[in-house]
């Protein structure tokens, strides 16, 4: 499958950035190969999934306000079918990490992510969630949400304007649309090794909570 076959309404795929990464992702998925019938079913399922991404706003700071602005009248997240903001992680498909993640919040971010049902996606919105942003040198800030959970799309900005957020969500839709429900699963990227290895002892930190016992 070619990346140009992934259609998004009103935005031709040539105008999208970062087509190479998506193409590499498709190739990786295609490595196992599937037959045509399943492919069609996959397309239908992906169409459903991509257009019904119910977000969970993990909003910690400024970016959360821009997320709210995006959901309000001027920008209207509802046009993408995404206005059904679920506050319960169990019912959400997409976690929008909007804001700084600090040491104290880290375990909770991970826990909320673990509570979500598959298929689940994560969008890192804003500089803080991508890399720690303005607070990258601070003692209490985790430099990027991807140290704790896998991130599918990075939306830069501080905070990104709602159009930027929409562009990021469209990118995510493209990613959802190339995945396979039958045959092989979506590729879950490994967690950043920093978090899973205790820097003191060199051992892997075992996450213990009531959800994975």
């Amino acid at each position: 499958m070619d990346v140009n076959k992934v259609k998004i309404k009103a935005l031709p795929s040539d105008d999208f950035k970062d087509n190479e990464t998506l193409q590499a992702y498709i190739d990786e998925l295609n490595a196992t190969g599937t037959n045509v019938v399943v492919g069609k079913l996959d397309q239908m399922i992906n169409w459903g999934r991509a257009n019904s991404l119910w977000p969970l706003a993990f909003a910690t700071s400024c970016c959360g306000i821009e997320f709210m602005a995006a959901a309000a009248a001027h920008y209207d997240l509802a046009r993408f079918g995404m206005e059904v903001v679920r506050n319960s992680p169990r019912q959400a498909d997409l976690m929008v990490v909007a804001g700084t993640i600090v040491h104290k919040m880290g375990p909770l971010l991970r826990r909320v992510y673990d509570q979500m049902a598959e298929p689940k996606y994560v969008v890192a919105m804003g500089a803080c969630a991508i890399s720690g942003g303005p607070f990258v040198n601070s003692y209490h800030v985790i430099n990027g949400a991807d140290k704790i959970i896998p991130v599918d799309v990075y939306i830069p900005g501080c905070p990104p304007r709602p159009e930027s957020l929409f562009y990021g969500l469209l990118q995510l839709q493209r990613k959802v649309k190339v995945e396979k429900f039958f045959g092989n699963k979506r590729i879950v990227r490994p967690y950043n090794p920093d978090t899973l290895i205790n820097p003191k002892t060199g051992e892997t930190v075992k996450v213990e909570n009531e959800f994975n016992k």
Binding site: K17, G144, P156, S164
Partner: peptide, 12 residues
């Protein structure tokens, strides 16, 4: 140019 979202961190 506000369209900056990427799949890969290094692309930023």
């Amino acid at each position: 140019d506000f369209e900056g979202a990427m799949f890969d961190r290094s692309k930023l």
